[in-house]
């Protein structure tokens, strides 16, 4: 009850009921194994489970609720021997999902050993990079990127991409590795992959002479990562990306895009009320956005 009181005095009118029903949706949609899927009743994945744990975690209490505890147990139970996580229990190969698990465990407190092993796995992740000068020049010509920079891949051994890089940076910061060289290189990678027009996409800002479209989710996550290492708001690339987000906020219509818009604007302390109101208007009767525990959890977290 006191938590609701705190919410009431810190949030705008209309937001509290939305968050309460969203919370109820997450509580009701947890699977028996402690995880969440991307749909109610679907198999559990690490990403929605981690996002739900972050969204539900009441930071004003020291102990985990039963739901939170089961979610944390799910994550810990599915950590691989190498320290990483796959996308779901059936995935035996560690990959980008490791970042999500670390973030959730760090947010929920405890599990220091699991976090440390996960961080070590991330830091040791092999990534494809091209250093041979002729190939490097060709890639520069085709894609206008520096192929020698290491970010983080979706899967070990692959090329780096924006989302796994941004998530790995957020996870490593949460694990106390903010000053690690891989984090600094990851930031360089993000700057290299920024669109000249502001913002990010999957990681190809340019393709054979044409600027590739920028997306809200990639931009929001990249901006969150930059914020986590205290890149200044006055940085020209941040300004350009936020300009893209603000311009896009007027035209995006889906719950997922509005949610990520909110994440980007909130992280940089920009005006969010209009976006918040439009997002709340899309909330379904069951308390969810898009019937999707992951999007619902991100929408809830954007209130924090």
């Amino acid at each position: 009850m006191w938590q609701h009181f705190l919410l009431t005095i810190t949030r705008g009118r209309g937001t509290l009921p939305a968050m309460n029903t969203a919370r109820e949706f997450l509580l009701q949609s947890q699977n028996a194994d402690g995880g969440w899927g991307y749909r109610v009743g679907a198999m559990s994945f690490v990403e929605p489970t981690a996002a739900a744990l972050i969204a539900l975690r009441d930071e004003n209490t020291f102990t985990l609720s039963e739901v939170e505890g089961r979610a944390r147990d799910f994550l810990i139970a599915h950590q691989h021997a190498d320290g990483g996580w796959g996308i779901a229990p059936m995935d035996a190969e560690s990959g980008w999902m490791t970042a999500w698990a670390i973030r959730a465990l760090a947010h929920s407190g405890g599990a220091n050993d699991a976090i440390a092993r996960g961080a070590q796995w991330l830091l040791a992740t092999q990534v494809l990079r091209v250093e041979e000068s002729a190939n490097r020049a060709q890639i520069k010509q085709l894609l206008a990127i520096d192929s020698t920079l290491r970010g983080f891949p979706w899967q070990p051994g692959d090329a780096s991409w924006v989302q796994p890089t941004a998530l790995a940076i957020l996870a490593l910061v949460a694990a106390g590795q903010r000053d690690h060289a891989r984090v600094r290189e990851g930031i360089e990678y993000l700057f290299d992959r920024a669109s000249a027009r502001g913002g990010w996409n999957v990681g190809n800002p340019w393709m054979i002479g044409k600027a590739m479209p920028v997306t809200i989710q990639d931009t929001a996550l990249a901006l969150s990562a930059l914020r986590s290492v205290q890149i200044a708001a006055s940085d020209a690339r941040v300004i350009a990306a936020l300009a893209f987000v603000r311009a896009a906020s007027a035209r995006v219509t889906t719950a997922a895009e509005l949610t990520w818009t909110l994440v980007a604007l909130r992280d940089w302390q920009l005006e969010i009320e209009d976006v918040r109101a439009r997002l709340n208007a899309l909330q379904r009767a069951d308390g969810s956005w898009q019937g999707n525990p992951f999007i619902t959890a991100i929408a809830m977290s954007s209130e924090m």
Binding site: F45, L128, W154, Q155, P164
Partner: peptide, 13 residues
């Protein structure tokens, strides 16, 4: 994509 990423480059590699 949740396994192979976006833009599913693993498969290109």
């Amino acid at each position: 994509g949740i396994k192979y990423g976006w833009p599913k480059n693993t498969l290109h590699v």
